[in-house]
Design a protein around this nucleic acid. Sequence first.
DNA 1: CGTCTATTTGAGATGCGTCAACCGTTGTGG
DNA 2: CCACAACGGTTGACGCATCTCAAATAGACG
Lengths: 237, 237
Amino acid sequence: MLSPEPTAVTPHQPALQYAGHNTEQAAGLEQRLAKASLRRVEAKEFVFAEGDPATHLYQVETGAVALYKVLCDGRRQVLGFAYPGDFIGLGAQGEYVINAQAIKPTRLRCLPLSSLSQMARQDPRLGFRLYEALASELAATRELLLTTGQRSASERLIAFLLALSRRNERRGQDAKVFDLPMTRTDIADFLGLTIETVSRTFTKLRMLGLIELPQASRVRLLDMERLRSMEGSDAEA
Amino acid sequence: MLSPEPTAVTPHQPALQYAGHNTEQAAGLEQRLAKASLRRVEAKEFVFAEGDPATHLYQVETGAVALYKVLCDGRRQVLGFAYPGDFIGLGAQGEYVINAQAIKPTRLRCLPLSSLSQMARQDPRLGFRLYEALASELAATRELLLTTGQRSASERLIAFLLALSRRNERRGQDAKVFDLPMTRTDIADFLGLTIETVSRTFTKLRMLGLIELPQASRVRLLDMERLRSMEGSDAEA
DNA sequence: CGTCTATTTGAGATGCGTCAACCGTTGTGG
DNA sequence: CCACAACGGTTGACGCATCTCAAATAGACG
């Protein structure tokens, strides 16, 4: 049920490539990030685990990270996937409350929380940016809740694919053909389904001529119109 | 640090309650709230609806409010319930993105967002507290996601009841006997079940001697031990 | 007392989960 | 270079938890 690991729960000492120098006072978040230390994690390696002391805010530079919570018996709920540009560790106070595990080789910018709060004190707009980022994470989580709570398996998978498509569109990438960096298990645990149901639903969408799967990890959306109509969209959309 | 644990029931946390002992930090908020205008809404009346321009941050004074999103075909996901002390409308920017509807006669303190952002500019600590409150709401939503995505009907209902119980405990109220201000429909839409399943599951828990239902809207938890063991608890709890 | 709504209960249908077998790819060591 | 193991993904058969449809019951309120 749970993915292959518990591979060794990585002790949380980031393999820092080079440490950032911290002399500038009112540097913006971007400038600060550009100089931030870099950390590389391999696929399946943890960025941090639930219960670890919260030390850094991370920004994904390349790769992808799965965020999840687990029940005591191993059932797992993936809360989201972080792609380049996304922040990980927002809202953490004291301890991380979720697990963050790379799903492919990943590079991360690391911002010590201490320096972050210091910066926020100096520049209120930074605090506002973090607040906004947190608000959109909340909005995304609510949307996922609506999906897992109310939608059917097909609707869930379509909503998932369309969300990826929209994200690509926003970034000027191909909205119809893209890779799925995560495994079927990750998708299943994200959508509250089993891998068998995810697989069968992929096949069903393929049979309906709605998508193509050139490889298991690559998808082409063929009929956006119909996909959108089958998503079970928000009332206010 | 932050309060004990996020509950699936309350998106908002006591961190921002009338903190009489916390007057030095963000004193403006409490003063402002005490003087804030009051609004009364009847049961079933909206505090605000999805798409409404966001104007106020509300704090529940008495009563209870359901927060939810709906799909175009009417399926509804309740995201949480706000009780006295809880804030409604956090993270809203431009427009409210969810519906907030009273489930019983309710009194609300109203804080115009304009004056709030002004206050936040003057006192950075206020911004931090709003950030914390938002982080708690995110944590609660994630917990609910774990529940609807991974737990069985019985586990969901038990998790719901235990969350209410913990909330009461935190507030020095009875942890074993309390009212359910929401309807079975609200509970069903909260847990991602149907009202029939909710009703049958209540009956099942009653038959097992785990709870009593003196009235449909009142519950007594009889065997906390066993209820907790049947909740399907977090790994990190 | 009567109407309306909320809740409970029953019977039957079904979508998804479970268990199991099979397949394709990757990587590894003889 | 091949054999084979390990892993991720697909497919099939079957069971069951939950949904659907329907009706009875209980409360709430005028």
